[in-house]
Each structure stands twice: as structure tokens, then as C-alpha cells.
Amino acid sequence: MAVIAMREALNQALREEMTRDGNVFVMGEDIGVFEGSYKVTAGLLKEFGERRVVDTPIAEEAIIGTGIGAAMLGLRPVLEIMTINFILVAMDQVVNHAAKIRYMFGGEVGVPVTIRTPGGGGQQLTAQHSQSLEVFFAHVPGLRVVAPSTPKDAKGMLKAAIRDDNPVIFIENISLYNTRGEVPDEEYLIPLDKAEIKRPGRDITFIGHSKGTLLALEAADRLAQEGIEAEVLDLRSLRPLDCDAIVESVKRTHRAVLVEEGWPTYGITAEVSATLMEHAFDYLDAPVKRVGGIEVPMPYSKPLENAVIPSVERVLEAARSIL
């Protein structure tokens, strides 16, 4: 297996799907000549040409709206929104249209569109460039929402998202594009509705997604030095949520710390916590603990940003409070 960076894994997924299916095309701001603000579309313009690699005006609502139109006619648009922060002006297209068209057409017409967009902070990009808004989408029936944490998952899930007949919000993370990991040489897909145990353990379960999973893995390494074995469950999919995997793990470990980069109030961790209350209450030996971003807009200053973004130390602190 080759070891590659997340951005390269995503690039491979796009290239392979565009090669496999002539209906797949990519569209977004600065994705052609410039190859994307995070270089995920590198080389695609040269390989597939301007017909299938479309540089657009700065018009997020039109990018998603026209993507929906093309998808209704059977194309497979993969839309890049430069950062998740910029999708907010297009939320009407996402929530009122992409998510509902199949239902409103009585199942006659689907919207097989994939919207790729990175969230997350940590790069001093401030309040309007650093948000983790996955919960806005995970709330909406009709959407699929995924947020992988490894290059292998990113590639397999992006390919699966493009082949899926539903609108998929594919959430990347700006701080993970350079993270490296093994990716199978042969073709593979990863289902869009399954969590995965990234590290088995018996004493406590850490549950996260995207960067939250990486914080959990690092915290688990630290606890292992003290003889405590933490299990790390990577949600991968946020809608649907893999409730079975969540409940099954906590039934074995009896303790849970939930980690997310975004604000925890009404967050992904709130939903996982409710799932545990409903389905694993009798197995819990301690209250469920949550770790998330401090609930302020992201500040520019590095010391302030560091104070706001969740850290391994805060995961460890939460774990120790219930061990």
C-alpha cells in the first residue's frame, strides 16, 4: 500500500471517478488553472479539459443551484465550495432543494450531487474561515453527510459519494490535507454509513470524526502509556449516524468521551450523547463527557486560537474525570 497525503487521496478519487464515468465533472471557484485553494483538483484541468473542470464566477448559490440542475438530468457533479464558511449563502439550495427534490418529486428525480468543502480551524484564518458547520447539514433529512479522518477513508468515501444517488455533503478539514496514511493500491469503496474502530480498547471509548478522531487517537496513545486502553471510534458518517457501532462499543467499555472540533452545543457530540442515553444508558458507569471548540467565533491571535480549539489535553482531562 502506498502512503499518501489526504489531498492526494482526494485527488485520486476524483481522477478515478472522472475516468470511470463521463457524467462526472467538477465545478467550483479557482479549481481549474489554480487547481483549488487546497490543490485537491491538481492536474484535472490538464487531463479532462475545460468541459469537465469548470472554473466558475464567485457565486456559491449558482454553483450549487446549477449543480442540482445538472444532477437532475443525470450528470454527476462534484462541486467544490472553497471553504464551508462560504456555503452559507447557498444554504437555500442545499436545504430547500438538494435535500428535498427527490421527495417532492415523489421519487421520480434524484440529485446525485457531491459537495466537497473543507471546514476546521487552526490556521489563523479567523471567524469566517475556521468554522466546523457539519451539524447544519447533519440536521437535514435527505442529505448524506460524511467527514473522513484518514486518506484511505477520504478516497473510498469520495468515490462512494460520487456514485451515490443522493446529495452528499463531503466535509474535509483544512488541517488534515497534509496528513499521510496508507491507501490500498487496488480500487475500493467505503460505505457512507459506517463508523470504524480506529483503535480497539477496553477501558473507555473515544468517539469523534474528522480532526476529532486524530485528537482521540493521540489521547489514546498517551493513556496507553499509563496502562489505560481507550477505544477510538471514528464516526466517518454524520448522517446517517452509525448508532449500532456507537452503542456496541460503549456497551463494552462503559465510558465515553465525545470529541468534535466545532461547538458542542446542539453539536455532533450532543447527538451521539443522546444516542447513548437512549440505547446504552444501563451500560454506562459514568456520565458521558464532551470535548469541543470553545463557543466563540474563531479569533485570529495564535494564543487565543489555541485556547479555543479543542486539544489532546482537554480530551485527556475529560477522560481522567470519568476513569
Binding site: I294, E295, V296, P297, P299, S301, K302, P303, L304, N306, A307, V308
Partner: peptide, 12 residues
């Protein structure tokens, strides 16, 4: 001087 982390929630 740099800002202090305790002030992160000011002005919200």
C-alpha cells in the same frame, strides 16, 4: 503584549 486566553470570550 499578546492577548490573553482568558479574554477569548469577550465581545461575544
Amino acid at each position: 503584549p499578546q492577548p490573553v486566553p482568558e479574554d477569548a470570550a469577550l465581545y461575544l
